[in-house]
């Protein structure tokens, strides 16, 4: 079972957490302010590799944490 290491609570199964999404990153090539808003609100990098995401420890300390992990690999493998 995938696990996440919460700095407050320790290693916990992924079902204790709520996924909050990766940090939005609007590409610089989009310059129109309205288009940037649309991209910020809806679009995702959906990276196949290293990502930086926010997770909420809903069943534990109820704090947000930043998780850097590799989406190419199984489970919650962190980025080294």
């Amino acid at each position: 079972m995938p696990e996440l290491d919460c700095p407050n609570c320790g290693l916990r199964p992924i079902e204790e957490f709520t996924f909050g999404g990766e940090r939005p990153s609007v590409p610089d090539r989009i310059t129109d302010p309205l288009e940037r808003d649309v991209d910020y609100a809806w679009m995702h990098d959906n990276v196949n590799g290293a990502t930086s995401e926010r997770w909420f420890h809903a069943a534990g300390c109820r704090r947000w944490l930043t998780v850097r992990r590799n989406t190419s690999l199984t489970g919650m493998t962190p980025v080294e």
Binding site: M1, P2, I14, E15, F19, E22, E53, L73, G75, M76
Partner: peptide, 14 residues
């Protein structure tokens, strides 16, 4: 579906 975005085809016992 699994809560974490991933491109892995791995399966879990859970």
């Amino acid at each position: 579906f699994d809560p974490q975005p991933s491109y892995s085809l791995g399966s879990s016992y859970n």
